[in-house]
C-alpha cells in the first residue's frame, strides 16, 4: 500500500470485483425477465387464461421481445419536466435494487462481499430505493405522477419501520448481523429455521416486503384505476423499463432476504439431503410465487387501510414479539429462540 501511484493489487481487486458483479447481475437480469413471464403465465392460469404463448415455444421468448420493443421506443421527456432529475429517477430506482445484492449469500462460500453488518447494509441500501420514485414523480411535473410519488413515500417510510423491527427479532435470534451467520444459525433441519420461533415477525416481514416493493395489493403508487400509472406515467421506452426492472429486482431481493432470514437460505430442510444453492433457489422461487399469488388474489388496499395496517397493527406486533423473544431468552426455554 505504500507505493506511489495506484496500487497494482488494488486495480486487480477492482477488476476482479467488476467481473464478479457482472456474473451476479447478468443472471439476476435474466431472472427478472423470466419473472415477468412467470407472473403473466401464473396469473393467467389462476384466472383461467392462457397467458403469453405466441413468441417462441409456449411464449418463452416473450420477455426478450418485450425488452427489444422497449429498447427501440423513444424516450419522451415532457417539456415541463426537470430534465436532469427526470433521467436520474429511474437510475436511482435501479441502483439500490442491484447494490443490495452485493451481500446476499447464495451458498456457504458463494457471496460477493461477506461483510460483518450485512443486514444493516441491506436495510440502508433498500431504504434509498424510494428516491427513484419520489424524484421521478416530482420531476415529471404531472399531478398524477406527483400523487403517486407522495403515496409511495409515505407508504415506504411507514412499512420500513415494521420491516426494521422484524429484522431486530432475527438478529436477536441469530446474534449476528452477518447474513451468512444468520443462515448458519438455522442449521439442523427445517424445525430450526427462524420462521417457527419468529412466526409473527415472518408474516410482518413478508407483507411489509410486498408493501415496500409497491406490489399489489399495496400498489397505490401506481394505482392505474385512480392515478393512471402513478409515478411513472410520463416515462416511456427504456426509462420506463428500468423502473420495471427495479421493481422486479426488488421483489427477488425481498424473496431472497425472506429465504435467508426465516427459511434457512441454502440449508436443506432435512438433514439427510445435502445443502446447496438448489434449496436457495427453490425457497426464493416459492416466496416469489407467493408475491404473484397475492397479486392474483387480493383487491388493492384503500390508502387509509394501508396506513392503519402499517402503524397500528404491524409495529405493535413486532414490538411485542421482540419483548417476547428477549424475555424467553432469559428463561430455560431460550434455546427455542436461537
Amino acid at each position: 500500500m505504500e507505493s506511489a501511484g495506484m496500487d497494482w493489487t488494488a486495480i486487480q481487486t477492482v477488476v476482479w470485483t467488476l467481473v464478479k458483479i457482472l456474473a451476479l447481475v447478468v443472471p439476476l437480469m435474466l431472472g427478472v425477465a423470466y419473472l415477468t413471464y412467470a407472473e403473466r403465465k401464473i396469473i393467467g392460469w389462476m384466472q383461467v387464461r392462457i397467458g403469453p404463448n405466441r413468441v417462441g415455444f409456449q411464449g418463452l421468448l416473450q420477455p426478450i421481445a418485450d425488452a427489444v420493443k422497449l429498447l427501440m421506443k423513444e424516450i419522451i421527456i415532457p417539456s415541463g419536466a426537470s430534465r436532469g432529475l427526470f433521467i436520474l429517477g429511474p437510475i436511482l430506482a435501479i441502483a439500490p435494487a442491484l447494490a443490495a445484492w452485493a451481500v446476499i449469500p447464495f451458498t456457504d462460500t458463494l457471496v460477493l462481499a461477506n461483510i460483518d453488518a450485512g443486514l444493516l447494509y441491506v436495510m440502508a441500501i433498500t431504504s434509498m430505493g424510494v428516491y427513484g420514485v419520489i424524484i421521478a414523480g416530482w420531476a415529471s411535473n404531472s399531478k398524477y405522477a406527483f400523487l403517486g410519488a407522495m403515496r409511495s413515500a409515505a407508504q415506504i417510510v411507514s412499512y420500513e419501520i415494521a420491516m426494521g423491527f422484524a429484522l431486530v427479532g432475527v438478529l436477536m435470534a441469530a446474534q449476528s448481523l452477518n447474513l451468512s451467520d444468520i443462515v448458519r444459525g438455522q442449521a439442523g433441519g427445517a424445525h430450526h429455521w427462524y420462521f417457527i420461533p419468529l412466526f409473527p415477525l415472518f408474516l410482518v416481514y413478508l407483507i411489509s416486503g410486498v408493501a415496500e416493493t409497491n406490489r399489489a395489493p399495496f400498489d397505490v403508487a401506481e394505482g392505474e384505476s385512480e392515478i393512471v400509472a402513478g409515478f411513472h406515467v410520463e416515462y416511456s421506452g427504456m426509462a420506463f423499463a428500468v423502473f420495471f426492472l427495479a421493481e422486479y429486482a426488488n421483489m427477488i431481493l425481498v424473496a431472497a432476504l425472506t429465504t435467508l432470514m426465516f427459511l434457512g437460505g441454502w440449508l436443506s430442510p432435512v438433514t439427510f439431503l445435502p445443502d446447496g444453492i438448489v434449496w436457495w433457489l427453490l425457497k426464493t422461487g416459492f416466496v416469489l410465487f407467493l408475491f404473484l399469488w397475492f397479486r392474483a388474489t387480493f383487491p388493492r388496499y384503500r390508502y387509509d387501510q394501508i396506513m392503519r395496517l402499517g402503524w397500528k397493527v404491524f409495529i405493535p406486533i413486532t414490538l411485542v414479539w421482540i419483548v417476547v423473544v428477549g424475555g424467553m431468552m432469559q428463561t430455560p426455554y431460550g434455546y427455542l429462540f436461537h
Binding site: L120, M123, A124, I125, S127, V130, I134, W138, M150, V157
Partner: peptide, 18 residues
C-alpha cells in the same frame, strides 16, 4: 456510516423532501 444512510437518507430526508 450505515446508520447515517438508514436514518438520515432513508427516512429523515424522504420526509423532508415530502
Amino acid at each position: 456510516a450505515i446508520a447515517l444512510v438508514l436514518v438520515y437518507v432513508g427516512a429523515v430526508m424522504v420526509l423532508f423532501l415530502f
